[in-house]
Amino acid sequence: MTDSKPTKRERLVAAAVQVFHEQGVEKTTLGDIAGAADVPLGNVYYYFKTKNQLVEAAVDAHCAQLHALTSQLDALPDPATRLKSLIAGWVEQRDVAARFGCPFGTLATELDKRDDGLDQAAAKVMRALIDWAESQFTLLGRPDAHDLAIELVAAYQGMSVLTNTLRDPDLMATQGRRLQTWIDTLT
Protein backbone atom coordinates (compact mmCIF):
# COMPACT_ATOMS: atom_id res chain seq x y z
CA MET A 1 0.00 0.00 0.00
CA THR A 2 1.46 3.37 -1.00
CA ASP A 3 1.22 6.47 1.12
CA SER A 4 -0.93 8.99 -0.75
CA LYS A 5 -0.07 11.98 1.40
CA PRO A 6 -1.27 15.21 -0.24
CA THR A 7 1.40 17.29 -1.96
CA LYS A 8 2.19 20.80 -0.75
CA ARG A 9 0.23 22.19 -3.69
CA GLU A 10 -2.79 20.02 -2.84
CA ARG A 11 -2.58 21.10 0.80
CA LEU A 12 -2.41 24.75 -0.25
CA VAL A 13 -5.46 24.41 -2.50
CA ALA A 14 -7.46 22.57 0.19
CA ALA A 15 -6.48 25.23 2.72
CA ALA A 16 -7.47 27.99 0.27
CA VAL A 17 -10.90 26.42 -0.21
CA GLN A 18 -11.40 26.25 3.55
CA VAL A 19 -9.98 29.65 4.47
CA PHE A 20 -11.74 31.47 1.61
CA HIS A 21 -15.00 29.91 2.82
CA GLU A 22 -14.41 30.87 6.44
CA GLN A 23 -12.90 34.34 5.95
CA GLY A 24 -13.68 35.38 2.39
CA VAL A 25 -11.17 36.06 -0.35
CA GLU A 26 -10.56 39.70 0.44
CA LYS A 27 -9.79 39.12 4.13
CA THR A 28 -7.56 36.13 3.47
CA THR A 29 -3.82 36.54 3.12
CA LEU A 30 -1.42 34.10 1.55
CA GLY A 31 0.03 33.75 5.05
CA ASP A 32 -3.37 32.57 6.33
CA ILE A 33 -3.45 29.89 3.65
CA ALA A 34 0.17 28.86 4.23
CA GLY A 35 -0.56 28.52 7.96
CA ALA A 36 -3.69 26.45 7.38
CA ALA A 37 -1.77 24.20 4.96
CA ASP A 38 1.22 23.95 7.33
CA VAL A 39 3.48 25.11 4.51
CA PRO A 40 6.12 27.85 4.78
CA LEU A 41 4.89 31.10 3.24
CA GLY A 42 7.74 31.15 0.73
CA ASN A 43 6.52 27.84 -0.69
CA VAL A 44 3.18 29.41 -1.60
CA TYR A 45 4.91 31.57 -4.21
CA TYR A 46 6.56 28.51 -5.75
CA TYR A 47 3.11 27.12 -6.63
CA PHE A 48 1.06 30.32 -6.95
CA LYS A 49 2.57 33.61 -8.05
CA THR A 50 -0.53 35.59 -7.10
CA LYS A 51 -3.52 35.30 -4.82
CA ASN A 52 -5.73 35.23 -7.93
CA GLN A 53 -3.98 32.05 -9.09
CA LEU A 54 -4.83 30.51 -5.73
CA VAL A 55 -8.44 31.66 -6.08
CA GLU A 56 -8.56 30.03 -9.53
CA ALA A 57 -7.18 26.81 -8.04
CA ALA A 58 -9.84 26.94 -5.32
CA VAL A 59 -12.57 27.37 -7.95
CA ASP A 60 -11.11 24.42 -9.86
CA ALA A 61 -11.15 22.39 -6.62
CA HIS A 62 -14.84 23.21 -6.16
CA CYS A 63 -15.44 22.06 -9.73
CA ALA A 64 -13.59 18.80 -9.05
CA GLN A 65 -15.56 18.27 -5.82
CA LEU A 66 -18.82 18.82 -7.67
CA HIS A 67 -17.79 16.37 -10.38
CA ALA A 68 -16.84 13.75 -7.76
CA LEU A 69 -20.15 14.28 -5.96
CA THR A 70 -22.29 14.05 -9.07
CA SER A 71 -20.37 10.95 -10.18
CA GLN A 72 -21.24 9.31 -6.85
CA LEU A 73 -24.86 10.40 -7.18
CA ASP A 74 -25.01 9.06 -10.73
CA ALA A 75 -24.40 5.58 -9.30
CA LEU A 76 -27.76 5.75 -7.48
CA PRO A 77 -30.66 3.92 -9.11
CA ASP A 78 -32.90 6.74 -10.34
CA PRO A 79 -32.96 10.52 -10.85
CA ALA A 80 -35.37 11.28 -7.99
CA THR A 81 -33.14 9.40 -5.57
CA ARG A 82 -30.11 11.26 -6.94
CA LEU A 83 -31.74 14.66 -6.48
CA LYS A 84 -32.98 13.82 -2.99
CA SER A 85 -29.52 12.54 -2.05
CA LEU A 86 -28.01 15.80 -3.28
CA ILE A 87 -30.41 17.68 -1.02
CA ALA A 88 -29.61 15.35 1.90
CA GLY A 89 -25.91 16.14 1.42
CA TRP A 90 -26.67 19.84 1.59
CA VAL A 91 -28.65 19.31 4.79
CA GLU A 92 -25.78 17.31 6.32
CA GLN A 93 -23.64 20.44 5.95
CA ARG A 94 -26.18 22.63 7.77
CA ASP A 95 -23.89 23.44 10.71
CA VAL A 96 -21.17 24.65 8.34
CA ALA A 97 -23.77 26.62 6.36
CA ALA A 98 -25.06 28.20 9.56
CA ARG A 99 -21.57 29.42 10.39
CA PHE A 100 -20.10 30.29 6.98
CA GLY A 101 -22.79 29.91 4.29
CA CYS A 102 -22.63 27.70 1.22
CA PRO A 103 -18.99 26.79 0.53
CA PHE A 104 -19.27 27.70 -3.13
CA GLY A 105 -22.15 30.18 -3.15
CA THR A 106 -20.35 32.56 -0.81
CA LEU A 107 -17.21 32.39 -2.96
CA ALA A 108 -19.20 32.95 -6.16
CA THR A 109 -20.96 35.96 -4.63
CA GLU A 110 -17.69 37.49 -3.50
CA LEU A 111 -15.99 36.90 -6.84
CA ASP A 112 -18.92 38.50 -8.67
CA LYS A 113 -18.01 41.82 -7.07
CA ARG A 114 -14.57 41.73 -8.71
CA ASP A 115 -13.64 42.81 -12.20
CA ASP A 116 -10.88 40.30 -12.95
CA GLY A 117 -12.71 37.47 -14.73
CA LEU A 118 -12.81 35.16 -11.74
CA ASP A 119 -16.57 35.68 -11.60
CA GLN A 120 -16.87 33.80 -14.89
CA ALA A 121 -14.79 30.92 -13.54
CA ALA A 122 -17.16 30.70 -10.58
CA ALA A 123 -20.18 30.84 -12.87
CA LYS A 124 -18.84 27.76 -14.67
CA VAL A 125 -19.14 25.71 -11.46
CA MET A 126 -22.66 26.93 -10.76
CA ARG A 127 -23.65 26.12 -14.36
CA ALA A 128 -22.26 22.61 -13.94
CA LEU A 129 -24.53 22.04 -10.93
CA ILE A 130 -27.53 23.42 -12.82
CA ASP A 131 -26.72 21.28 -15.85
CA TRP A 132 -26.44 18.13 -13.73
CA ALA A 133 -29.75 18.86 -11.98
CA GLU A 134 -31.36 19.60 -15.36
CA SER A 135 -30.21 16.22 -16.66
CA GLN A 136 -31.86 14.54 -13.66
CA PHE A 137 -35.14 16.36 -14.23
CA THR A 138 -34.94 15.44 -17.92
CA LEU A 139 -34.55 11.79 -16.93
CA LEU A 140 -37.71 12.23 -14.85
CA GLY A 141 -39.44 13.14 -18.09
CA ARG A 142 -39.95 16.76 -17.20
CA PRO A 143 -40.25 19.14 -20.18
CA ASP A 144 -39.48 22.02 -17.78
CA ALA A 145 -36.21 20.42 -16.62
CA HIS A 146 -34.11 23.58 -16.98
CA ASP A 147 -36.55 25.71 -14.98
CA LEU A 148 -36.76 23.04 -12.27
CA ALA A 149 -32.96 22.86 -12.06
CA ILE A 150 -32.77 26.63 -11.62
CA GLU A 151 -35.50 26.43 -8.97
CA LEU A 152 -33.63 23.71 -7.06
CA VAL A 153 -30.28 25.49 -7.07
CA ALA A 154 -31.92 28.83 -6.21
CA ALA A 155 -33.78 27.19 -3.32
CA TYR A 156 -30.53 25.74 -2.01
CA GLN A 157 -28.68 29.03 -2.26
CA GLY A 158 -31.59 30.82 -0.59
CA MET A 159 -31.78 28.37 2.29
CA SER A 160 -27.99 28.58 2.69
CA VAL A 161 -28.10 32.37 2.92
CA LEU A 162 -30.96 32.29 5.43
CA THR A 163 -29.36 29.51 7.46
CA ASN A 164 -26.15 31.54 7.62
CA THR A 165 -27.79 34.90 8.26
CA LEU A 166 -30.04 33.57 11.00
CA ARG A 167 -27.38 31.10 12.26
CA ASP A 168 -30.12 28.45 12.28
CA PRO A 169 -29.13 24.99 11.01
CA ASP A 170 -32.67 23.72 11.63
CA LEU A 171 -33.89 26.07 8.90
CA MET A 172 -31.80 24.17 6.36
CA ALA A 173 -33.09 20.83 7.67
CA THR A 174 -36.69 21.99 7.36
CA GLN A 175 -36.20 23.45 3.90
CA GLY A 176 -34.31 20.35 2.80
CA ARG A 177 -37.27 18.18 3.77
CA ARG A 178 -39.56 20.50 1.80
CA LEU A 179 -37.32 20.20 -1.27
CA GLN A 180 -37.28 16.42 -1.01
CA THR A 181 -41.08 16.39 -0.80
CA TRP A 182 -41.17 18.71 -3.80
CA ILE A 183 -39.02 16.22 -5.75
CA ASP A 184 -41.57 13.51 -4.90
CA THR A 185 -44.38 15.62 -6.38
CA LEU A 186 -42.52 15.89 -9.68
CA THR A 187 -42.25 12.18 -10.37
Rank of each mutant, 00 (worst) to 15 (best):
M1W: 14
D3V: 06
D3L: 11
D3E: 09
S4W: 09
P6F: 14
T7A: 08
R9P: 08
E10A: 15
E10D: 14
V17E: 05
V17A: 03
Q18D: 13
F20Q: 07
F20P: 05
F20I: 02
H21I: 01
Q23R: 15
Q23L: 14
V25K: 01
K27P: 02
L30V: 10
A34S: 15
G35W: 08
D38K: 15
D38H: 12
V39D: 10
G42N: 11
N43P: 00
V44T: 08
Y46R: 09
Y47P: 04
K51M: 04
V55Q: 01
A57M: 00
V59I: 12
V59Q: 00
D60I: 04
A61Y: 05
Q65I: 02
H67Q: 12
H67N: 10
A68R: 06
T70R: 10
D74K: 02
A75N: 04
D78Q: 03
P79G: 05
A80E: 10
A80T: 09
A80C: 06
A80K: 12
W90K: 04
W90Q: 10
E92I: 03
E92L: 14
Q93E: 09
R99Q: 11
R99T: 05
F100Y: 15
G101S: 07
P103T: 11
T106H: 13
T106L: 12
L107G: 14
A108R: 14
L111Q: 05
D112R: 15
K113E: 11
D116R: 07
D116S: 01
G117Y: 00
G117A: 06
L118G: 13
D119N: 05
A121C: 02
A123P: 08
K124N: 07
K124H: 12
K124G: 04
V125M: 03
M126S: 09
M126H: 04
M126F: 02
I130K: 12
I130C: 04
I130D: 10
A133Y: 01
A133T: 10
A133M: 06
E134F: 01
S135D: 04
Q136P: 03
Q136W: 05
F137M: 11
F137K: 10
T138K: 15
T138C: 12
L139F: 07
L139S: 03
P143F: 08
P143T: 11
D144V: 03
D144R: 02
L148H: 11
A149M: 01
I150T: 00
E151R: 15
L152P: 14
A154V: 07
A154G: 02
A154M: 06
G158T: 06
S160I: 01
V161I: 13
L162K: 13
L162R: 13
T163I: 03
T163N: 03
N164A: 13
T165H: 09
L166H: 00
R167P: 02
D168F: 03
D168Q: 12
P169F: 00
P169E: 06
P169S: 07
L171K: 08
M172Q: 11
M172F: 05
A173V: 03
A173N: 01
Q175S: 08
G176I: 07
L179T: 07
L179R: 10
T181S: 11
I183N: 13
I183V: 15
T185N: 11
T185S: 15
T187L: 07
